[in-house]
Write a protein that binds this DNA or RNA. Structure first.
Length: 961
RNA sequence: GCAGGGAUGGCGGAGCUCGGUCAAACGCGGCAGACUCAAGAUCUGUUGACUUAGGUCUACGAGAGUUCAAACCAGGAACAAAUCUCUCUCCCUGCACCA
């Protein structure tokens, strides 16, 4: 068994000692490969390795191609998740302890995570170790973290530039907010990690008939204004009269308190819900007089606590009305007017068409009632969740297929009418809007408080909506190399809608925001142009330059915004040589950069990466190549905390071996698609590796001698493989490349051996080149096999093989295929025909090779695409007309799609089959004779085709046994 | 809701850019055989249905639609969709202050 751990340790040590991955500028072309640096609030799992190993394979490939390559790596410590972890650990949150344990963090270590810094420091160590063990070819001299003092200096400069160019703007913004902790609440701050979804809702104002106070009714469906029958309030709740929207309104007391966070609310007086009952309000559009009634479903902590009732189209309203009616409550004269027709196929009926329930016989006269029926709600025993689903279904269908049946927009699609109605009411000042948290279930902060929307004033944003910047990005997009190509579209869409992006936060680790030092620079914004720093950070470190020296002059000079080295030297106190080295090295490595990340970062990080480069830096420093890879599943399922199926990176390497893991992640699927790590695949690769190693060890037992047919075949396969694989690599089609390099090579070697191949020189060359090509992916194992093959230098110093085109022979490969397919045909025929139960046995098998003229005739037919033309062709005039037409006519039906065949003479085919006759006999288990069509007496001989010999199975009857 | 992507055989997953060479690569899994005292690993074959000669039929979420070149001679008619169009159903991803 191959001991992967031992091999890994061995080569890690040798790589470390040789310093092979440290690179400085030289006469070669430079390439910098970077992957989005890891955020350190959790250990990485094997899924994260996908990006890093893919980037590594690319770096290694380009090294083999003769480029000077660096693959540097930093660490991201900025932001709030680490803070959230520390807070939860301090508060003794059992859940976080469980999660960390699931990631393999020991109890004792968890207890040390009492502040964000120790959280990130802890994971920094673990992650760094994981990167080493994964075999990433990183130049570790160039590492840093996003909270280093020098990093902060660079970020401050970046924001200075953004400000100068007018990309920083102030504005207002709605966020999730915890009223208890007085903090913004993001996904990782909520119970269950749910993202608070902030939505806006319409509020329509209905004037009280007795006063100038309004009922502000929150609704998603302003178009139903034509069918409002009454107003609902919560009768056992407290209400207030408050000034809001510049008017006096009735609001639920609790709502008035929440709405304060997003608009001005001034409470004037209090009133109980019960007091509101019996009043009347005026529909501002229809001017109907509407009674105020108690609604069982009305909440006094959501929106305004005042609801307009449209019982014909809102199941809750319908149920509330019916309940009141049956309980004897005096509801006055309330009827059901149909406002919207759902008519999907023009027959006037359509309710419930998209539902799976049986909708036959539903009375559609009152839509809300019909939807309740479909959803299984039948009277008294109905549940709220049934009403809920009726509501959803009705909203959805009416939105999608509904047309207005009444009002000013009669006949118009609901979705369109809604907008117009809303617009018109806003114009008249009778519709306003508010923000609400739209999640189905309430969202709670981890402290237990309900999350509410809050309007933030005076917030700084990066203006990615800046027209000129946007245009520049859109224009530049086609100039970048993007893999997979489909990601280019995602970018172009993201470029279209990216707009204001908050640039600062009130808490977390990171660089202070220069324009508001009490805030921290938001952590996606502080990691956009940091890749530049990889190019010179080691110079600063080795020259003992301090962070304080890194003023704006330094960065202006290094980033080529200024050429004034003397000013920079003077104001920074850094010597001219060092300054110039920094500048030169930045330009050297930035001539070609390859940026790697998961495809999930296209719409945020990668887009911001591009925009910041384009916004601040000169064109020579703009991004050149982007690679966005898909994610990784484990045993067919997404890895997640809740599924408990997370494999931490370091565990994964120990369990599966870095190389098999890398192989599956890098080459197991196309870059763009989701990869799947399956243990079975991993075992399969390990077994193949065993076989390869044994193969290599057996090479010494072979001898070199003159070349046979099968040796040429293997050479041809090798060289055509090199051509294809190189093309695939250059197009970032790693999976395709490695099917050829790995799987196909192994089966070719197997075939070679089964055909009696045993030439040492041939096998050695095949293995040498194959292993070199394998090394970008299985870096440790390739190194080990390379040394097993007797090489003393590191494989990293080798060159990617170049195909010897003279060794590629289509005909040799085709002949071999013909032999194989003939074997399989013979087996099929025997299998099929020996089922007759007669007990007869095969005496021998005749393989009849087509006459020479057939391949000539076929070639002409392919060219002419016409049987008659081919018949007339003078070069075929020597052939018997009858035989010729019989032969050609069998292709007539599919004449337009028969392809050109490799040109092989009948002699070559015969020789090849005669050489292989023992092999064929063995494979079919019967004696085989090879015949040439013109000389054959077999009645099947005429069936022979140029690329497919005729087969005759000769039987011995049972009586002769 | 908005935007993007997808639906292929027991499973995963190619192919669909340029409709005929696709019963559909490759890998799992299943079955049979070899090896072994045995199991595992490995190797070989097989794995839609039917079939006594290399073939036929049915198939690529559901439903509908679409069109072309050529075929010993002459005149006439005509064929094909995983792949194109539309509709539906279902699934996945992103949607902002969050890494």
């Amino acid at each position: 068994m191959i001991d992967y751990q031992k091999i890994e340790e061995k080569w890690l040590k040798i790589w470390e000692e040789s310093g092979i991955f440290k690179s400085d500028p030289d006469e070669r072309e430079g390439i910098m490969v970077t992957a989005a640096f890891p955020y350190l609030n959790m250990p990485l799992h094997i899924g994260h390795l996908r990006t890093y190993s893919t980037a590594d394979a690319y770096a290694r490939y380009m090294r083999l191609k003769g480029f000077n390559v660096i693959y540097p790596m930093g660490f991201h410590k900025t932001g709030t998740p680490a803070l959230a972890i520390a807070k939860r650990v301090v508060s003794g949150d059992a859940e976080i302890v469980e999660i960390l344990k699931a990631y393999g963090v020991p109890d004792d270590d968890i207890r040390t995570m009492r502040d964000p810094l120790s959280v990130t420091n802890y994971f920094h160590e673990i992650t760094s170790r994981g990167f080493h063990k994964s075999g990433l070819s990183i130049d570790w001299r160039r590492t840093f973290t996003s909270i280093d003092a020098k990093y902060s200096k660079m970020i401050e400069w970046q924001f200075q530039k953004l400000k100068e160019k007018g990309y920083l703007v102030k504005g207002t913004h709605i966020i999730g907010w915890c009223t208890n902790e007085q903090n913004p609440v993001g996904q990782h701050d909520t119970k269950g990690d749910v993202q608070p979804e902030i939505e806006s809702m319409n509020v329509i104002l209905f004037k009280d008939t007795e006063s100038d106070i309004y009922f502000p009714c929150a609704t998603y469906r302003p178009e139903t204004i034509y069918g409002v029958t009454n107003i609902f309030v919560k009768d056992d709740a407290d209400y207030v009269i408050a000034e809001i929207f510049g008017l006096r309104c009735y609001l639920a007391k609790r709502c008035s308190e929440l709405l304060r966070y997003q608009t001005d609310v001034r409470v004037i007086g209090e009133v109980s819900g019960r007091d509101l009952l019996g009043r009347y309000a005026i529909n501002p559009i229809t001017e109907d007089k509407l009674p105020v009634l108690p609604g069982f479903f009305v909440r006094d902590d959501f929106a305004t606590g005042v609801v307009m009732s449209v019982p014909s189209h809102a199941p809750f309203d319908y149920v509330a009305i019916e309940n009141l009616r049956s309980s004897g409550y005096n509801i006055g004269n309330i009827g059901y007017n149909r406002l919207i027709d759902v008519d999907r196929d023009g027959n006037g009926k359509g309710i419930g068409r998209s539902s799976k329930s049986d909708v036959n016989g539903v009375d559609e006269s009152i839509p809300a009632r019909a939807y309740l029926y479909i959803s299984g709600y039948h009277g008294e025993n109905g549940t709220e969740s049934e009403i809920e689903s009726a509501t959803k279904l009705e909203y959805r269908e009416e939105e999608k297929w509904g047309r207005m049946a009444v009002g000013d927009y009669k006949g118009m699609e609901v979705s369109k009418a809604r907008e117009l109605i809303s617009e018109s009411m806003r114009g008249k000042g009778i519709e306003k809007s508010i923000s609400i948290i739209g999640n189905e279930d309430q969202v709670y902060c981890r402290c237990g408080t309900v999350v509410i929307p809050k309007l933030v004033n005076d917030q700084w944003f990066i203006d990615y909506g800046n027209k000129e910047l946007k245009e520049r990005a859109i224009e530049y997009l086609p100039n970048m190399r993007i893999y997979p190509e489909s990601a280019r579209k995602s970018f172009s869409i993201a470029f279209g809608w990216i707009d204001l992006r908050a640039a600062e936060r009130s808490q977390g680790l990171g660089t202070r925001f220069p324009l508001n030092p009490s805030h921290i620079i938001e952590s996606l914004s502080d990691s956009t142009i940091y890749t530049t720093m990889y190019t010179y950070i080691h110079i600063l470190e080795s020259r003992g330059v301090s962070a304080e020296q890194l003023n704006y002059d330094f960065f202006d000079f290094v980033y080529n915004i200024s050429d004034d080295v003397d000013t920079a030297a003077k104001s920074t106190g850094i010597d001219v040589v060092t300054l110039k080295r920094c500048k030169d090295e930045l330009r050297y490595w930035y001539r070609f950069t390859s940026r790697h990340s998961g495809s999930d970062l296209i719409t945020n990080h990668l887009t911001m990466y591009i925009f910041n480069h384009l916004g601040i830096l000169g064109k020579e420093l703009w991004p050149k190549q982007i690679v966005a890879n898909g994610l990784l599943n484990y045993e067919g399922k997404k890895m997640s905390k809740s599924m408990g199926n997370i494999v931490p990176l370091n565990d994964g390497i120990e369990k599966f071996g870095a190389d098999p893991l890398r192989f599956i992640e890098i080459a197991g699927s196309d870059v763009e698609s989701e990869a799947d790590f399956r243990t079975a695949d991993c075992e399969n690769i390990k077994a193949k590796n065993e076989w390869l190693l044994n193969m290599i060890r057996s090479v010494n037992g072979l001898r070199s001698r003159h070349l046979n047919h099968i040796d040429y075949w293997l050479y041809s396969k090798l060289n055509s493989k090199i051509t294809r694989a190189t093309d695939a690599m250059d197009g970032f089609m790693l999976r395709q490349a490695y099917i050829d390099i790995y799987y196909n090579s192994i089966s070719e070697l197997r075939h070679y051996i089964s055909r009696g191949g045993d030439n040492q020189a041939v096998v050695t060359e095949f293995l040498d080149k194959m292993i070199i090509m394998l090394s970008p992916v299985m870096c440790f194992f390739a190194e080990e096999m390379w040394s097993e093959l007797g090489h003393t230098d590191l494989i990293e110093r080798e060159r990617w093989p170049v195909a010897d085109r003279s060794m590629i022979s289509e005909s040799i490969e085709r002949l071999e295929e013909m032999v194989e397919s003939t074997i399989s045909d013979i087996n099929d025929i025997i299998g099929l025909t020996s089922r007759d139960g007669s007990g007869r046995r095969v005496r021998e098998v005749r393989v009849i090779i087509a006459a020479e003229w057939k391949s000539r005739a076929y070639g002409i037919l392919v060219e002419r695409k016409s049987v008659s033309d081919a018949m007339k062709d003078i070069s075929l005039s020597d052939i018997d007309k009858q035989k010729l037409s019989a032969f050609l006519l069998q292709f007539a039906k599919r004449i337009n799609y028969i392809g050109r065949e490799v040109d092989i003479s009948a002699d070559d085919v015969i020789n090849s089959f005669r050489d292989s006759v023992d092999y064929i006999s063995k494979a079919v288990g019967h004696s085989v004779v090879i015949e040439y069509e013109p000389e054959s007496v077999s009645e099947r001989a005429s069936r022979a085709l140029p690329f497919k010999p005729a087969i005759e199975v000769v039987w011995v009857g049972p009586e002769q046994n």
